[in-house]
Design a protein around this nucleic acid. Structure first.
Length: 586
RNA sequence: GGAUCGGUAGUUCAGUCGGUUUAGAACGCCGGCCUGUCACGCCGGAGGCCGCGGGUUCGAGUCCCGUCCGAUCCGCCA
């Protein structure tokens, strides 16, 4: 018999009545009634009530030790009689103690484990081992484990092969800031931690492995966001040979529908996921990661106001900019405060303001109501299918910037008015990303996403089209407004690659130098291939219904990329620095 | 690097227009009472450089400036 336990804390039932059992776990709560002392004992599997008799040695020990101490107890499983607790799986029984051994006593806690006491995140991160004992976070981490094992099973079942790729690799241009590792053997040289195993997975395709996947650690030294962990994160990295974009979509839809249906009872988008072009997404949703749990589409209103007498709008259109708006129904009873809040939000986001038009009691009101002619009003009503009580939020200005602002306003309105469909995962693909874009600061042409994507139209497009007009076989998968991943059909042809890099300002020698391994490989017979790399942490966020990525990572860094528990980053010894040929300046 | 919000007991918060006593409450902690609790209950107690520094004022937790820390957003994230 195991010296610590015969059963875990989640498995005893009425069928075990009369058994002598031994349990080990953390003292979850204590309820000392003076004569009797009830306590609950918790482990990974559940919670069981234990009970000591008045005046017993067990009672003395239990009353003297704090909650969260680890104890081993022995006793008899007895019925709770009239006092069954229906909220507990083990609620029919309790264990009447004959022996208690304290394995490890707990000091006064910095925050409560049994209660969710909204402890500050700094404290929670410093005592992460305590936080991880708490119900929600513990469940999140177990869910994450399930997600990863389900992914492995489903990928393997679909014929994918799992690989490992190097963690110490070389720095490459483009992309995020690298984490660097100084080389001891080569003074002044550095390894870089991979931002993604991009080149390795493509090389595995060139090596003939056909279907690759990896739960891959990725390292990027960039600033954090609520859905972006600083430092390191995990991708479900996927690559396939001899595939079209549609075949990749089909594989991913199968994976996601299976995974999300299995691990959640929320509604999941049925195949085929909607495909929205990048241009449409920006125009209709003001974002390349639209939240499709609510409609509220942006409409272009340039044609309606083409002849307007309102000078602000006329000037905007004459300058070649745009007028666009959103329409929300049922706002007849909203106060001035509501519109003020909207106005303030838009200004906070960097907008100049937002014009409103309200249809109310057959009249046209709102901040620009009096500038709207009858014909314009009728056209607006028709465009938005507006009803009495509808309100329009209209912005005029530089096209890209108002598109983005309206996109943010769209989300804000969904927050305020609670427009999102509940208990639903709405997936979509965003396709036809531009191959290149203009660097706003320098005006130079740069890769807009991934330099390894195949341009639509191939070499001919690169040679003959305006680079900014060229689209790539480049796509994102989005769920509930969260970008899960980018992917692409890759460029496997050296000539097209050299030309694409040339347009982005890199000459042949730079490509040979920085991407030598891969470009070399492409000269020895490379299969057409493509892939994608959904973020595992973000999948876990969605399935755990958490707003912050740190809630699905066992040991996350804080926003400032520190580990408060392990105290990383930290200083190292002079000896270590010397071996690595490093000197600290300042 | 920038913006916004926040920082009062171990924790969560309250603290009005700058002045009402010794800066409060709940949870936790310590002590006492309590034989069927389920977040047990009841009584009592300890616990505070009001983030830090400066300023305004007769008087600052409260107003102003600076600074530090945190969260969120922008930049950044091929």
């Amino acid at each position: 018999m195991n010296i610590y336990r015969t059963h875990n804390c989640g498995e005893l039932r009425a069928s075990d009545l009369g058994k002598q059992v031994r349990l080990s776990g953390w003292l979850h709560r204590k309820r000392d009634l003076g004569g009797m002392l009830f306590a609950t004992l918790r482990d990974n599997y559940g919670i069981t009530q234990i009970l000591s008799e008045p005046g017993s040695e067990c009672e003395k020990i239990l009353s003297s030790v704090r909650v969260e101490s680890v104890v081993t107890v022995e006793g008899e499983v007895i019925s709770r009689g009239e006092n069954i607790n229906k909220n507990m799986p083990t609620g029919e029984i309790e264990v009447k103690l004959s022996k208690v051994i304290v394995q490890s006593s707990a000091e006064v806690l910095p925050f409560q484990v049994a209660d969710d006491d909204n402890a500050p995140e700094t404290t929670r991160l410093t005592y992460r081992f305590l936080d991880l004992r708490r119900e929600k976070l513990h469940a999140n981490i177990l869910l994450r484990s399930k997600i990863i094992s389900e992914i492995r099973r489903r990928m393997t079942d679909m014929g994918f092969v799992e690989f490992q790729t190097p963690i110490l690799t070389s720095s490459s241009p483009e992309g995020a800031r690298d984490y660097l590792v100084p080389s001891r053997l080569y003074p002044g040289k550095f390894y870089a931690l991979p931002q993604a195993p991009q080149q390795f997975k493509q090389l595995l395709m060139v090596s003939g492995f056909d279907k690759y996947f990896q739960i891959a650690p990725c390292f990027r030294d960039e600033d954090a966001r609520a859905d972006r962990s600083p430092g390191e994160f995990y991708q479900l990295d996927i690559e396939m040979s001899f595939v079209t974009q549609d075949e990749i979509f089909a594989a991913l839809e199968k994976l996601f529908i299976g995974l999300f249906s299995d691990l959640s009872d929320w509604k999941v988008t049925s195949p085929v996921f909607p495909r929205i072009t990048y241009a449409d997404a920006i125009a209709k949703y003001g974002s390349d990661k639209p939240d499709l749990r609510f409609a509220l589409e942006i409409e272009d209103l340039g044609d309606i106001f083409a002849e307007t007498s309102f000078s602000l709008f006329r000037d905007t259109l004459e300058a070649g900019h745009s007028i666009r708006g959103l329409c929300v129904d049922g706002l007849a009873d909203k106060s001035r405060k509501f519109y003020k809040e909207i106005e303030d939000f838009v200004k906070e986001q960097g907008g100049k303001g937002v014009a409103t038009v309200q249809f109310k009691d057959g009249e046209v009101k709102g901040s620009i109501g009096k500038h709207v002619s009858e014909a314009e009003s009728a056209a607006l009503r028709e465009r938005f299918n507006a009803k009495d009580g509808s309100a329009l939020f209209i912005m005029a200005g530089e096209t890209d910037s108002i598109a983005k602002l309206l996109g943010q306003l769209r989300l804000k309105l969904a927050d305020i008015l609670d427009l999102r469909e509940k208990n639903s995962y709405r997936f979509c693909w965003i396709v036809d990303f531009p191959m290149f874009e203009k660097d706003e600061e320098t005006g130079e042409i740069i890769f807009s996403h991934n330099p390894f994507s195949m341009p639509q139209g191939g070499l001919e497009a690169l040679n003959n089209m305006d680079p900014l007009e060229i689209k790539a076989y480049q796509y994102d998968i989005v769920c509930n407004g969260i970008e899960l991943s980018s992917g692409a059909i890759r460029n496997h042809l050296p000539e097209i690659m050299y030309r694409a890099f040339e347009i982005a300002g890199y000459d042949r020698s730079v490509v040979d130098d920085k991407f030598g391994g891969m470009i070399q490989a492409f000269k020895y017979g490379a299969p057409p291939h493509g892939g994608i790399a959904p973020g595992v942490d973000r999948i876990a966020m969605l399935l755990a219904n958490e707003q912050n990525i740190r809630e699905v990572i066992a040991f996350p860094l804080n926003q400032n990329a520190q580990d408060l528990m392990m105290r990383a980053p930290s200083t190292v010894t002079e000896k270590q620095l010397k071996e690595l040929h490093l000197k600290i300046v300042e």
